[in-house]
Amino acid sequence: AGAGQLTPALLDGLREESLQLVSKLKDSSSSCAVDVSTMWWGAAGSKELCVVTACESSVSLWKPLASDHWEKLHTWQLGEIPVIQIVPLPDTCNLMCVALGDLEIGEIRLLLYSTENDSFKQSLVKAGNIKAVLGLQERRLVSSCRTGQEQQVEMVSLAETGRNKDGQTLMPPEETVLAFAEVEGMREALVGTTAVNSIVVWNLKTGQLLKKMHIGCSYLASICHRAYSDSGLLFVVLSHPHAKESESCGSPAFRLVAFNPRTARGAGVLCSSLPPGQAGRYLEGDVQDTSAVAVLTSGAIAVWDLLLGHCTALLPPGPQGSWALARWATSSACLLAGQRDGTVCLYRY
């Protein structure tokens, strides 16, 4: 474990927020990191926020110890199909999912710790040509599957033991759903972004497809990260992995867009672009509350305040190489930054 202070880039002559390196963990048995996340782990009456790291063939759970050290509690071996991503289940203890596959997701597995018999287990939740998956509040999991012309969008509820409790089929749009986001504060509302750049809205209780709204042609293949309703408008945070540089917005990474679900009309509210002087474009990222983080093609990590629309911190590629992964822990107060060699750095933001 190490501790130190990294000074973020100075923007507009101001020192904005800072990222403070809190600790570092490295899985010596893993050579290539695929994803990183957090999970609440509870045993013997105590509950702790643990770090989860994934490499191609296994997923490890790390428990915090004193003095910013970490202990590996367990490693789930996942067999021959490679891990593609961790699918956290927010507000859930001792349960998470992982997506496995070759080029596309072919399987979703549940990884769990059973307090009853103090054992770690795994089980299959879903198999198919899965295009998108998201863990929702209250141990629910939504996914979209496509086989030829047919698309299936389904939500399953998981019991504490990991068994499938019940499910709800959601009416699929014609186009392929590429990402989902819960509408915060509305338990039954879900949004998705599609391959032809539309936002769709579902009622999770009835399965109804309530509305389809076009995002606009300027930003193709948008991915939704966060959605909330305020004053009768639906606000959606989108990332634009394929966006081109424009005069008005520079090189955009995230945009906050407001939609009126009654009329299906939308308007851009704020655009968060790559900081001036940063070459390349958005590669992958994460959003928590009003904070967004992304790995850029330059190998740097950039952090934005989505309400101000500007970059607040920048982590240049380290001496060991480029950053590969950037995720918020359960709150945006803690950033998990991963390198391909399996090193995960925790920063206080």
Binding site: M171, V201, Q208, K211, S231, G232, R262
Partner: peptide
């Protein structure tokens, strides 16, 4: 963005759209 850009706004959009959408 103003109401004129986005059209008439309803605070109960989710309930209204759920009542109108096909089951």
């Amino acid at each position: 963005c103003s109401e004129s850009d986005l059209g008439p706004i309803s605070l109960n959009w989710f309930e209204e759209l759920s009542a109108e959408a096909p089951p």
